[in-house]
């Protein structure tokens, strides 16, 4: 299977509570919290689409869209 290619990080800022779980467990350190404690995909070019952030998010606030 070909490697999935990132299309976009969909982050729901209204649902994100800034717990930092996705930031900590991202293997490529793609994510950071901004001044308002909301997650932002700062280094999105490093994303390998493993979706661990999406699977671990307690608030269902992050979703990785990949190209088919």
């Amino acid at each position: 299977m070909a490697k999935p290619k990132l299309k976009e990080h969909h982050i729901n800022r209204d649902w994100c509570k800034g717990c930092g779980i996705c930031v900590e467990f991202c293997p490529k350190k793609v994510l950071e919290l901004d001044k308002q404690d909301k997650v932002v995909a700062v280094h999105f070019t490093n994303c390998i689409c493993c979706k661990l952030c999406e699977l671990r998010c307690p608030d269902l606030a992050i979703e990785i869209e990949t190209e088919l």
Binding site: G18, C19, I21, L55, C57, P58, D59
Partner: peptide, 15 residues
Amino acid sequence: PHIWCPGCGHGMVLN
């Protein structure tokens, strides 16, 4: 957004 606290494990179970 749900009522659980930031970082609550229950949200991860729901997920």
